[in-house]
Nucleic acid binder design. Structure first.
Lengths: 159, 159
DNA sequence: CAAGAATCGGTAAATTCTACCATATTGAAG
DNA sequence: CTTCAATATGGTAGAATTTACCGATTCTTG
């Protein structure tokens, strides 16, 4: 369990975020450490939960998902039962890639992908609109992915 | 270059999204194919650009980023020069993890992570507010990550 | 300084990757 | 239907990698 992340940790995490299928040898080389130390360190970072998982990031359009939207959802003021079912149902639906609870006008920001507009319409009518306690839904179509980095700028200082 | 994705492709991509460090053997087993065929297929999916990259997904808080916000940005109507610099600068800044151009009230939806509120304030004052052509910026603090799946529900049908 | 704990780099066995093979399957043309 | 070419298939062996363990070194702590 790394209390503080070292500069080497940061380099390891940067490299693994860029390409997590690097061999341990190449990883060690980039981070400037021996293969043994590198292997141990990576394990420690995994077990500390710093690395949530290793994932293949797909091209969303080539995967057959032509439709993408940012959806702002507001719930009726705030019955806990409704909040819990909302969260549980959102987590269950594979079309919802991300969901954040936020301050501001909307309670939740979702990112939803579907095959096409028709599929999104079904998502709304058959699923989202039918959840209990939904007060307002506002859809913003995604015109273009400007940036999808998903690589976190790891902080190394007093952590 | 897969014209249509097969059911096996879909299973491969699902498995790789869940854990891209599975051994080729285990991958082949899950997708119900021989190791040779599996290895070739994965290569093909990579070369077709369906797999953008393999990445370690980090725990954002454990990485030292305690502050997260969804930021809505509107540009003054729409000078192309301003749009281009805006996009280029946004791509340069590591605090901006995602950025989508959207329909609706705001032109762009950003997700920004920083060490703390002070760092975010610097991001705004020293960077975002100084970009040319910014008409409006609205910040929504992220209270809680409800879901960060980042695994795309791959479509296998007529693609 | 001395004792204990933690970390280091190196090593070897087990596993895995990767390129190649001969065979089987597919698709088109005669 | 048959033939031929093109493609896909499963198996295999050498190369590379992973992974657990070793003694040696460094770092704490009293």
């Amino acid at each position: 369990m790394p209390e503080k992340l070292t500069e080497q940790d940061r380099r390891l995490l940067d490299a693994l975020q860029e390409n997590c299928r690097l061999s341990n040898q190449e990883l060690a080389e980039r981070a400037g450490m021996s293969t043994s130390a590198c292997w141990r360190r990576v394990r420690a970072l995994e077990e500390a939960g710093l690395v949530r998982r290793y994932s293949a990031l797909l091209d969303i359009e080539k995967s057959g998902l032509g439709f993408q939207a940012i959806v702002h959802v507001t719930l009726t003021r705030h019955d806990h039962r409704h909040v819990d079912t909302f969260i549980a149902e959102i987590r269950r639906r594979s079309e919802v890639l991300d969901c954040y609870s936020t301050t501001g006008e909307a309670d939740y920001h979702l990112r939803v992908v579907c095959r096409d507009l028709a599929a999104y319409n079904r998502f709304l009518e058959d699923f989202l609109f039918r959840l209990p306690g939904i007060a307002n839904v506002r859809t913003n179509l995604v015109l273009k992915d400007i940036k999808q980095h998903s690589a976190v700028p790891v902080q190394t200082g007093p952590g």
